[in-house]
Amino acid sequence: MTLEIILLLLLLGLLAGFLSGSVGVGGGVIMVPLAIWFLGYSQHQAQGLSLAVLAVPVTFLAAYTYHKNGHELDWRYALVIAVAFVFGGYFGTKLAISINQQLLKKIFGVILIIVAVKMIFFSSAKA
């Protein structure tokens, strides 16, 4: 691994971590496109990288910071979602590896567009 690659990986991690902590995005939304664009990864490789990074509870400290600063988190909810995420991730991966990379990339992009439109135009957050 060259110094250039190490610096690129550090930049990718810092950017994903910063955006995860500041606006709640990181894994799929940031790391997948950056891995494709800057590391030359395929869609499958980029998704695998994103999941591998999340395999370790890297965002626990960020979540705890929100909790500690008065943004109450229900840790029971987080635990239930995390357990379900493990199973959903397993079955979702089984499906993803059977899909052609070009189609998978399009599905990924459409999901990002749908989420973006919903976030921009339809607010449903509790005050």
Rank of each mutant, 00 (worst) to 15 (best):
G24I: 03
V25P: 08
G26S: 06
G28P: 07
V29W: 04
V29K: 04
V32N: 00
A35P: 02
I36T: 09
I36G: 02
S42L: 08
S42W: 08
H44V: 02
Q45H: 09
G48Q: 02
G48W: 00
L49N: 03
L51A: 13
A52H: 08
V53Q: 10
V53M: 09
A55W: 10
A55T: 13
V56C: 08
A62Y: 06
A63R: 00
A63E: 05
Y64W: 13
T65E: 12
Y66H: 07
Y66G: 00
H67L: 00
N69S: 06
G70C: 00
E72P: 00
D74L: 05
D74N: 14
W75T: 01
Y77V: 13
Y77G: 12
I81C: 07
I81M: 10
I81N: 03
V83Q: 05
A84W: 06
F85L: 13
F87N: 05
G88W: 01
Y90F: 12
F91G: 00
F91V: 04
G92A: 03
G92E: 01
K94R: 14
L95K: 12
L95N: 07
I97W: 03
S98H: 11
Q102F: 08
Q102D: 15
L103W: 13
L104Q: 03
K105C: 06
K105N: 14
I107E: 01
V110R: 06
I113C: 14
I114G: 04
V115W: 06
V115M: 12
V117I: 15
V117K: 06
K118R: 14
M119D: 10
I120Q: 07
